[in-house]
Write a protein that binds this DNA or RNA. Structure first.
Lengths: 245, 245
DNA sequence: TTTATATTCTTATCATACAAGATACACGCC
DNA sequence: GGCGTGTATCTTGTATGATAAGAATATAAA
């Protein structure tokens, strides 16, 4: 039982940059500084904090990535947000095990069922066209056995649903989730391709959802979306079970 | 019609650090490098890319924040993830207008309805205790008129529901959302405090949800959660309407 | 073989210098 | 006085070289 990482974890090295980053972050998030305000110059900060300008620049650089600060050559460093928003990330929840995958799909479930409901309420004709186009591509891909195209079409369909919600947060969240979902869908499609029907089931499920959204039937849309995701979960369980056992 | 930003937009300054960051990012995400692999040393990269070590360090620093790289003094720079995961962020969607707030609550809707469903399936006795404790705190806060305590108890309740899902992604996502939700809840509680009943409605809605989760009644949990959020949306609309008009 | 030491990698930090963008102010012109 | 222009002087961005300190490896000693 090797545990190298356990020993690595002991290295509680807090670098100067780490400290200065925390210092600056609390300066920004504490509310002492207004949004849009100019920070002291890097040289001044370095002198005040008793470190070199290198360390200050390192810290500022990190907070720029975090979206708290912004710098302009010749002007200085500005506060763009006082909210310690590090974002929502699923790092570490990669599709290593079926458990991880299912947790991800469960999160998808919640959000996609309601996306379908909002889509049913607000969809435009253009939204419907996008969904049907994706559906056609999906059918063609399954017919021709093009797995990658199938994945793309599948994602395009769900993206179209999210677009139809008229709430960009749904779309943005889907775009984020999709980077993780992509590989699970790929697993599904690959396995589906080995079946006699070539994996036609998702197409039918999508069609039910499209019809509900077209009819602006909110409840039917929720039901169809939930059913589709539940089928996906079931398929994934089967496929992963086959693979790992 | 002033358009200073139009002129600002001309400044298409792409700094060297930006370029090298993109270069390194694509090196990492393209799959040429394995996770755990060691990158060439900063000096080597600097020489190969034709820039100073300063620029390379800046780029590496950014990718460390993004979670793609990790560095250890004396060892080198490692690849910790090949996924370009910048996280899901709602920066820019602050609660400035009622429209922004509603979009946020809509996203919350999707995810919290299903959280209630999973909670109903998987809640432990301890989970129920946490919910009921939060509920008690909520009641006390409303009775005593302590607005801040009311907000905290409200959030604690929903956090307890997410914990009961036994899916840490739900909890993590709630924790992220909550930083934005907090202020909208605060608005609600502040307004509620001016009503004759002191804003008792959410308490009753929470109780319905608790009962459903206790009974492990999945459908009732969904209904209760949806009703609660819809009431919240309605209340927010009223309050913001009053405020802004 | 094991242990201690030296060497040589690496990143982290510092100091300095210069380039380039941006601002403010004084100068000279109308 | 009013106005454009150059310039001094801020700022951040980049380069360079040196040093500190951690980590791996080769080397020598026990």
């Amino acid at each position: 039982m090797k545990e190298p990482s356990a020993f690595r974890a002991v290295r509680k090295t807090v670098s100067l940059s780490d400290q200065v980053t925390d210092e600056l972050r609390s300066m920004v998030t504490s509310g002492d500084l207004e949004v849009g305000e100019l920070l002291p110059s890097e040289s001044t900060l370095a002198k005040n904090l008793g470190v070199s300008r290198t360390v200050v620049r390192e810290a500022v650089s990190r907070l720029k990535v975090d979206g708290l600060l912004s710098s302009q050559q010749g002007r200085g460093v500005f506060v763009v947000s006082t909210r310690p928003d590090r974002g929502f990330s699923m790092r570490g929840h990669d599709a290593q095990s079926i458990e991880h995958v299912l947790r991800m799909v469960e999160l998808r479930m919640g959000f996609e069922v309601e996306a379908a409901a909002f889509a049913a309420q607000r969809r435009t004709r253009h939204d419907l066209t996008m969904m049907r186009d994706a559906q056609s591509s999906f059918q063609e891909a399954v017919a021709s056995g093009d797995i990658q195209a199938g994945v793309d079409a599948d994602m395009a369909f769900h993206r179209a649903v999210c677009t139809a919600t008229d709430n960009e947060l749904y779309l943005e969240f889907f775009n984020y989730l999709s980077s993780y979902l992509k590989e699970t869908i790929l697993v599904s499609r690959r396995k589906a391709a080995t079946r006699v029907d070539g994996g036609q089931a998702p197409i039918a499920e999508h069609q039910t959802l499209i019809d509900a959204i077209a009819d602006q039937d909110v409840d039917a849309a929720r039901t169809a979306a939930r059913y589709h995701i539940e089928c996906n979960m079931h398929r994934l369980k089967t496929y992963y079970g086959v693979m790992k056992t």
